[in-house]
Design a protein around this nucleic acid. Sequence first.
DNA 1: ACTTTTATTATACAAGTGTTCAATAAAAAT
DNA 2: ATTTTTATTGAACACTTGTATAATAAAAGT
Lengths: 187, 187
Amino acid sequence: MKKTDLRVVKTKEALKEALVFLLKEKSLKSISITEICSIAKVNRGTFYSHYEHVEDLFEDYYKDIMKDLTDSYLEPYKHVQILDTGQLNPATIRIFHHIAKYEKFYKIVFSKTAPLSYYYLLLEHIQQLMEKDFGSLSPAEEDRSMLSAYQANAIIGLAVEWHRQDFRQSAEEMNRILVRLLRYTTG
Amino acid sequence: MKKTDLRVVKTKEALKEALVFLLKEKSLKSISITEICSIAKVNRGTFYSHYEHVEDLFEDYYKDIMKDLTDSYLEPYKHVQILDTGQLNPATIRIFHHIAKYEKFYKIVFSKTAPLSYYYLLLEHIQQLMEKDFGSLSPAEEDRSMLSAYQANAIIGLAVEWHRQDFRQSAEEMNRILVRLLRYTTG
DNA sequence: ACTTTTATTATACAAGTGTTCAATAAAAAT
DNA sequence: ATTTTTATTGAACACTTGTATAATAAAAGT
């Protein structure tokens, strides 16, 4: 693994900083590559040697946040014994708190014009975390990915609806709603 | 309700036809407004008086398909009595067959670069269909939208995973997988 | 320190975008 | 059939995009 060129690191940092700056005053959709480069003081051609679209840069930023937050997701798991069912344990799900904390960020991720790639990044992340809970009753190998896709996307569905209702519930309320919903779906 | 101007109808039809034609040979992302207008023999300025982006035109096309298919979704419900639980009834879910039938279309809808708006159109559609099943045990008013969001998105999660695996399972297999998964999640 | 490698820059170009406007032509209204 | 309304056109504009090139400067390798 060769260490990356310092110039590349600096360039990417400058671009990311410019994007974050611009996101505070306008929508992702309205931010142009030219604009980012002008603020970052980076040549536009250099942008294209690293990314294709503004969205790719945002995705880089996104990945950073996901990484930073993996620990906070996993944190509650340290206090609980291994779950003995494949069911979701609402008490251990920190996702609603996470989304509330980064509300502004998720308003971009869940906006109609956002590319599906952002959604997929979140989905994959949650899928991975959930697969930890399969533990004992691991479904057939071929069903594993389907089960995690099913459960993870169900949770994201709540987040999407939450977003649609402009986050009027608190994260705690969302967890309580989840408990109630599981009661319905499990008969 | 004033009848729409014939010119508008003709223009929109020409644009839609041009888009569908182009989608057969290239990706949605690579299709320009200029290109569509050139084929449709419509002035570019006219395009902008109806739509903002190529995606908006596609969304129009999308809605048509959704409408055409609502009947096929509901068709199985005519042969079954009212469901007595809020649970998903895999036998009545025609969605996997629908997706298989329009596989090429859904490869666009589920592609990473597609805007989330396509996803939402599908979600809303399925949500509405599912809310019909709540019947007797209707959850509290405030939980209704959350429950349908949860269940509808869970199903779409399977479709997304199906797409990720390049639709290697048949629609029937997907329905069987759903039955198995419900066994896990309902303990 | 010196050389080699390569990321970045400056510049230019063809094409697409988003917008505006007066002129035109097609449809609706009478 | 004639008038009124309005969608469409053509043309022009500043701007962004995507791509390519040689020149430069900065980092890595020795």
